[in-house]
C-alpha cells in the first residue's frame, strides 16, 4: 500500500517546556513502523511554540492513531493533532 506522511501539531504544556528535550521524547515514543522525517517549529502566541513532526506510517489499518496516542502520552505534551496527511 505504500507509506503515508502525516504532519502532526504537538503543543507543549507551557511556554517553559524544553522543546529539544521534548522532541527527543517524541522520537523515543514512536510506535514500531513509524519514523519522524523532520520536525518544524512554529511560534504560536504568548511564548507558546508548537512542534510539527512529520511522521511516516504504513498506509494500512490504524492510520495515525497509534502515533497520536504515543505522542499524547509523552511528558509535557498538552495536545496532539494531525494537520496534514498525504501519500509519500
Amino acid at each position: 500500500m505504500g507509506k503515508v506522511a502525516a504532519k502532526l501539531k504537538v503543543m507543549p504544556k507551557s511556554p517553559d517546556v524544553d522543546l529539544d528535550a521534548l522532541q527527543e521524547r517524541l522520537e523515543a515514543s514512536l510506535p514500531e513502523g513509524a519514523h519522524i522525517k523532520g520536525t518544524q517549529r512554529d511560534d504560536v502566541a504568548f511564548g507558546l511554540v508548537a512542534l510539527f513532526p512529520t511522521v511516516t506510517v504504513p498506509d494500512d489499518a490504524g492510520g495515525t492513531e497509534a502515533v497520536e496516542e504515543a505522542f499524547a502520552g509523552v511528558e509535557d505534551v498538552e495536545s496532539v493533532q494531525v494537520e496534514e496527511v498525504g501519500r509519500i
Partner: peptide, 11 residues
C-alpha cells in the same frame, strides 16, 4: 494525494 486506507479519513 489522499491515502488509500479509510483510517486516514478522520485526518
Amino acid at each position: 494525494d489522499c491515502p488509500g486506507h479509510r483510517d486516514f479519513v478522520k485526518n
